[in-house]
Design a protein around this nucleic acid. Structure first.
Length: 667
RNA sequence: GCCGGAUUAGCACAGGGGUAGUGCAGCGGUUUUGUAAACCGAAGGUCGCGGGUUCGAAUCCUGCAUCCGGCACCA
């Protein structure tokens, strides 16, 4: 007999060979039905897997949403694979994990058949529902490695056969069998799974898209055909998720950017942004705001060249480690004759800067620096070009030309922690000013490909860690996490991840502690001892890039910017043409008060104007008709406001709006 | 870069071997209007670019470009 301890403190004696399902049944039929899996001494397991000794047991039900979703999603992946092999014999199976909102499975299509397409999805969904309807038991079996390999090789499943040989020695190798018949479907899987396919709600999932994916994530491997699905505990959750996706699509910065006439992208300059007047107003406000913050924080703004000689990039190390991301330009006059190539091919090469750091060291290196000059904080709105793979480009979020709010702090070892802490405070202020109350901080540790000694990396990593710890921000509240292998080639990074209005996260700010570049480019200062010393260089940015940050702001606010950032802050709209002159006077007063105001005198009904300016997301609409013109008032209507409108004198309105439009740092 | 899909008027979209359609916007007119779409009219397109098949191609084939969804990449 085994002693099974339950969460309520009671202990049940169960015979050997009994399972958590037996315990659930003994407690009551309701629980037996609701129980999806078992948590044995903290580890989630199949509910039908027999106890192996005394145990602490918690039954997992749909109330344990996180565990239940993970189980259900994993099951759906399994059923997807079974369905695909039923429908498309010869398709090889590979991997199929649960994801944040569902699952996917990677397949190698049968010979002669191409990858899956969207048209296949409804057919596969139907087959999945049939498998659920058949309520096939999912049975865990422990196999010998060699038997698994032999079986898969016989079946032509070469990916699974390859994978099983690489599983760790210590782990038991388990296969899951669905169905009882001899034709039952088998998959190599760590589990756990639900007891049977009938536990799933056939209306709680949807196959969403197809994609290519490299086998084991390596571009040198064959490309597999991936099918994604989203899966939930019930239809209501699924529908809610689909609504969330629609809401997110409505916020898409590319769509809003077009609707609000903020910017455009076109093939002739793919990956670079054409900013329109409205979009660039947002940029200018952000830039002015950042300059005020930077000035107050003791930075000095500089501007450095776009093009530098390739030899400079060799010295900095970018030529070796980063060249494939750079735009290279021959330093010669192009041939203008009809005959012959445009460039000779043997001129010296220059490159557009992909980063600002080397140029900032060159500025630092001018003249002799004393320890008294440190910390020296050099800031630049640095315009960079990166030769990104075409498939990576995405609206404002991933572009080939962008402007960083970049700065480099040259300091001594003793100053690092304080500088990093000051930066944490500055970043916190900026994010909150811009409407992001929630963000996470993560530490990206040394990558495999890197410059510098392990001792330096040890130091750099612990300095960054210490600064966040002593700032009290290395906590769960700040999503503190360390990410091995994700640092830059020259330095570890602290990363700031913003959470937006609908819960998505975006990596924006960073600070990196670098001992490599100052060394490679021979930066030094004279210490108190009269000798030369290497400064440490802290690379840091808060927005990351203006382009991407504005993209994030657009999605965060769904285009409804706070007043100080709104490209058009107010529109004065007339009801009758008799009010035209008065409307012009009001608009002039607003403009004189620094408000970005448009005036709408068109021969349209006020309904039409209200609708149009509301859709254009203008924060304030001042409606003036005959009455307002006579009384010197305006009817002020706020975007998305519950209250319909407030009538006040034009002067009051101007004063109020002037106050509301002040940027957060000037309030 | 890789896999799949898409590209038709300023925007959103329909059509699918016989020579191009709807709605909105824009333009002209009527209407002077009170808080989310007044009415009428005329106009607007080398159907992404190149090559091929065909009596005839926006439509079929092919190459390229860009975009979209993923993969890989992301200092």
């Amino acid at each position: 007999m085994f002693k099974i301890a339950l969460p309520d403190g009671s202990v049940r004696e169960m015979p050997e060979g009994s399972t958590p399902a037996d315990v659930a049944a003994a407690i009551g039929p309701g629980l037996a039905k609701a129980a999806l899996a078992a948590r044995i001494d903290g580890e989630v397991r199949d509910i039908t897997r027999p106890f192996e000794g005394d145990a602490r047991l918690e039954l997992v039900t749909s109330r344990d949403e996180k565990d239940a979703l993970e189980l259900v999603r994993h099951d759906f992946a399994h059923i997807l694979a079974e369905a695909v092999q039923n429908l498309f014999p010869g398709t090889q199976i590979t991997f199929g994990p649960a994801t944040d909102d569902g699952f996917y499975y990677d397949f190698a299509p049968a010979p002669g058949r191409g990858p899956f397409t969207d048209e296949d999805l409804p057919v596969i969904e139907e087959e999945m529902r049939r498998i659920i309807a058949r309520d096939e038991p999912l049975i865990r079996e422990v196999w010998k490695r060699e038997d698994v390999r032999a079986l898969f090789e016989k079946q032509g499943e070469r990916f699974k056969a390859e994978w099983v040989m690489e599983l760790p020695e210590a782990e038991p190798i388990t296969m899951y069998r669905s169905g009882n018949a001899e034709t039952a479907w088998l998959d190599l899987c760590r589990g756990p799974h639900l007891a049977s396919t009938g536990k799933l709600d056939p209306q709680s999932f949807k196959l969403t898209r197809v994609s290519g994916a490299y086998w084991r994530g390596n571009p040198k491997n064959p490309m597999l055909s991936r099918i994604y699905g989203t899966a939930w505990l019930n239809k209501k959750q699924l529908d809610a998720h689909l609504v969330r996706l629609e809401e997110a699509a409505k916020r898409d910065h590319r769509k809003i950017g077009q609707e609000m006439d903020l910017f455009h992208l076109q093939a002739e300059a793919h990956g670079s942004v054409f900013w329109h007047a409205h979009g660039f107003l947002i940029w200018r406000e952000l830039e002015a705001y950042m300059r005020r913050r930077i000035d107050a924080a003791g930075y000095r703004e500089i501007k450095t060249p776009q093009l530098m000689d390739a030899r400079q990039w060799e010295r900095s190390g970018h030529w070796g480690k980063y060249r494939e991301n750079m735009f290279v330009v021959p330093d010669e006059i192009p041939n203008t004759e009809e005959e012959g190539p445009i460039v000779s091919g043997d001129a010296n090469l220059m490159a557009l800067k992909p980063m600002n750091c080397p140029a900032h060291i060159l500025v630092f290196n001018q003249g002799i620096k004393s320890y008294r000059d440190l910390p020296l904080r050099l800031y630049e709105n640095g315009s960079c070009h990166r030769n990104e793979p075409h498939g990576a480009l995405h609206g404002l979020m991933r572009v080939r030309q962008f402007t960083q709010d970049d700065a480099h702090i040259f300091c001594t070892e003793e100053q690092i922690v304080q500088e990093v802490r000051d930066f944490c405070a500055l970043a916190d202020r900026v994010y909150k000013d811009l409407g992001f109350d929630c963000y996470g901080i993560k530490l990206a540790l040394r990558p495999d490909q890197r410059f510098g000694s392990d001792a330096d990396w040890d130091k750099a990593e612990s300095e960054l860690r210490d600064a966040v710890v002593t700032a009290g921000m290395a906590t769960e509240e700040f999503g503190w996490e360390e990410l091995p292998g994700e640092g830059a080639f020259y330095a570890p990074k602290l990363e700031w991840h913003l959470t937006d209005a609908i819960g998505r996260t975006w990596q924006v700010g960073t600070i990196q502690s670098d001992r490599v570049l100052p060394d490679r480019l021979d930066a030094n200062y004279i210490g108190e001892d009269g000798a030369k010393h290497r400064p440490i260089m802290l690379h840091r940015a808060i927005f990351g890039s203006y382009e991407r940050f504005i993209g994030i702001l657009i999605e965060h606010y769904a285009g409804k910017f706070p007043l100080w950032l709104a490209p058009v802050q107010a529109v004065v709209a007339t009801i009758v043409s008799d009010a035209d002159d008065y409307a012009r006077q009001v608009a002039a007063k607003l403009a004189a008060a620094g408000i970005r105001v448009d005036i709408d005198l068109r021969n349209e009904k006020i309904n039409y104007k209200v609708r149009e300016h509301s859709l254009a997301k203008v924060p304030l609409l001042l409606v003036v008709g005959k009455r307002e013109a006579e009384e010197g008032t305006v009817a002020l209507r706020r975007l998305s406001s519950e209250e319909r409108q407030v009538v006040m004198s034009a002067d009051e309105a101007v004063a109020m709006m002037r106050g509301e439009a002040v940027p957060p740092d000037l309030r």
